[in-house]
């Protein structure tokens, strides 16, 4: 097979030879060809621009357009209201509560995922007998789908048969209404989400820790530092690009948490876990209020854009080496 393929590979590829390249460069001086280049440029860009227009730009503009109207039962914009939807939305208590809940959720998930993931990776990075087994265990959540983890945790949170409350009873701790108490529901979904993110985060952190050269620690040993000092002054700075990467990934992915919320709390109780994305879904596809959902989408897009901007500003400043 390989030998039969080879001759065809060796066939001259005229457009790649240096002579052709010089011809093109020479040709740019020619006005007519320059015009042709422009024409070609658009031709090359054409397909991707078309795809982007259909699947990205148009929906974005349409969403913004819809957010300036009231939409009827068919989702058609009927009454132009300008920015009234935005004004109303930002005056809606439950929306502000959703904003707050999303903030708590996103920050909570990212923080705990990073801390626990790093902790597990640090443990797995030790030379202990049988650590390979734990490395496998720690990465295992990567293979678990949202629905399976949601069901798995729902069982654990079950008020009457859940293992968590059974444990609590066994330890003479007060029983917690995991998914029915507004505060605990947030804790519960954060726990589940952190658990889901953990496998991936662990793997990334573990890889990062492994790639820190051992001699850096040797040098620090000789320089007279203890292991805590080394963690803060060598390990953390060395893995800071990874840390940033994980933070971005986790933040964005928890902003998008939908399946988990839908399966575990459906936004409840009392809207305690009604995150922005879930709210958009409910308003659009359950309540059929496309104008409101569009307005919320635009606000969400602006928030995510802002956060991304801040993150990349930080990236340029802090984690570059």
């Amino acid at each position: 097979m390989i030998s039969s393929l080879r001759p065809s590979k060796r066939r001259p590829q005229p457009q790649l030879t240096p002579e052709t390249g010089s011809q093109v460069t020479a040709g740019i001086k020619n006005f007519e060809l320059k015009r042709n280049d422009k024409y070609y440029a658009w031709l090359f860009l054409g397909p991707s621009l078309l795809v982007l227009s259909i699947f990205v730009f148009y929906p974005m503009l349409r969403t913004f357009y819809l957010s300036l109207f009231l939409t009827d039962n068919f989702g058609r914009p009927t009454v132009f209201v300008g920015f009234q939807n935005y004004v109303n939305l930002l005056a809606t208590k439950s929306y502000l509560a959703s904003l707050q809940a999303t903030g708590i959720y996103v920050v909570g998930v990212a923080t705990f995922t990073i801390i626990v993931g790093l902790l597990l990776a640090a443990v797995a990075n030790q030379k202990i007998k049988g650590i390979e087994f734990f490395r496998t265990i720690f990465t295992s959540t990567m293979g678990v789908s949202v629905s399976v983890s949601a069901i798995f945790w729902l069982f654990m949170f079950n008020p009457s048969i859940g293992i968590l409350n059974k444990l609590a009873v066994g330890l003479h701790l007060p029983v917690v209404n995991w998914l029915t108490d507004p505060h605990w529901a947030m804790v519960a979904v954060i726990m589940t989400s952190v658990w889901m993110h953990l496998g991936f985060t662990f793997l990334i952190f573990f890889g990062a820790l492994q790639s820190v050269p051992k001699t850096l620690y040797d040098a620090a040993d000789v320089a007279g530092t203890n292991s805590r000092y080394q963690f803060w002054h060598i390990t953390l700075p060395m893995i800071s690009p990874t840390l940033f990467f994980v933070a971005v990934i986790t933040l964005i992915s928890s902003f998008k948490s939908f399946g988990l919320i839908d399966l575990m709390t459906a936004g409840g109780p009392t809207n305690a876990t009604n995150l922005l994305v879930y709210r958009v879904y409910r308003d659009a596809f359950v309540d059929g209020n496309y104008a409101l959902a569009s307005t919320e989408s635009i606000v969400l897009a602006v928030i995510i854009a802002l956060i991304t901007l801040i993150q990349f500003k930080l990236l340029a400043k802090r984690v570059n080496y």
């Binding site: 079950n158 009457s160 209404n177 029915t180 409840g268 109780p269």
Partner: peptide
């Protein structure tokens, strides 16, 4: 006994009731 709302709530309450 508060089971909250949603699909899990009704599943949980009938499980409790049956048991």
């Amino acid at each position: 006994m508060n089971f909250g709302s949603g699909g899990n709530a009704s599943a949980n309450e009938s499980a409790s009731f049956l048991s």
